[in-house]
């Protein structure tokens, strides 16, 4: 048998994929990598300048960018109305704030859960109700290793991501009759604006990165590639799964 260079079950050719949080970090890399693998991508974020930068980096034609603050129900509804029928949704927008237990502010608690947990749930609800999710579609949710393991000062973030992980398993079960799959990914520390300039100093981050069995933090593309696997038909029989992508850090604790 001759080798067929066009054979590729991991391809996203012909798929239309919505990526939230596409104006930065993991979402931006995911949008770009999806476009490289043939997908039409609908990218969304709040910051128009950075979303435009992502848009300008996409390969191929037919992509769409939509500005939306997903915590605002009007924006969310307008986004859902504008998107075409989707074969994949990457629920990736998220925020983090480090706060030791005794300093948790109610305001931050509300905002972190709203962004990381409630918004993806409401987005999927609306997409389903408006029949924007195709048969055989794949939903991917960016959770975190923080949902499974603990790191100092991140209890609210971890809890918001654990709630999301649990929701994804329910999603997988309830949507299976429609042949829609749902999986979560759980990255360890990835070099994006989310982790820099916060409560951890650059020195602390460097020291922490050395604790990773693979010796470094992740790159956004390395997360994108796992998301793409879950979006592609290569993962057609995987649903309700939590995929850890963390350079081995969760083997240590």
């Amino acid at each position: 048998m001759e080798y067929n260079p066009t054979y590729n079950p991991f391809s996203l050719k012909g798929k239309t994929i919505l990526v939230t949080g596409a104006s930065s970090g993991i979402g931006r890399a995911t949008a770009i990598e999806c476009s490289k693998l043939g997908a039409i991508v609908i990218i969304t974020g709040r910051n128009s300048e950075r979303l435009q930068q992502t848009y300008d980096s996409l390969y191929g034609l037919g992509h769409l960018q939509i500005i939306a603050d997903l915590n605002n129900l009007e924006d969310l509804t307008s986004l859902v109305n504008q998107v075409p029928i989707l074969d994949g949704v990457v629920n990736n927008a998220g925020i983090a704030k480090t706060q030791p237990i005794s300093f948790i502010k109610e305001e931050d608690l509300q905002k972190i859960f709203a962004t990381n947990t409630f918004t993806p749930i409401l987005l999927v609800k609306q997409l389903l109700r408006k029949k924007k999710i195709n048969k055989n579609a794949s939903l991917v949710f960016t959770s975190s290793v923080s949902a499974i393991k603990s790191d100092l000062g991140n209890s609210v973030y971890g809890a918001s991501k654990a709630a999301l992980q649990s929701y994804v398993r329910y999603c997988a079960r309830e949507l299976a009759p429609k042949s829609i799959r749902a999986n979560s990914i759980h990255p360890g520390m990835v070099n994006t604006p989310l982790i820099t300039g916060g409560a951890h100093s650059d020195d602390d981050l460097q020291t922490d990165a050395q604790k990773y069995p693979l010796g470094r933090y992740g790159r956004p593309e390395e997360i994108a590639w796992s998301i793409i696997y879950l979006l592609s038909d290569a993962s057609a029989w995987i649903t309700g799964h939590s995929l850890i992508i963390d350079g081995g850090i969760s083997t240590l604790i």
């Binding site: 480090t98 706060q99 005794s102 300093f103 100092l152 000062g153 409560a199």
Partner: peptide, 10 residues
Amino acid sequence: SLIGLSIIAM
């Protein structure tokens, strides 16, 4: 480091 995080939160 936890006290450092507490100082920031304080």
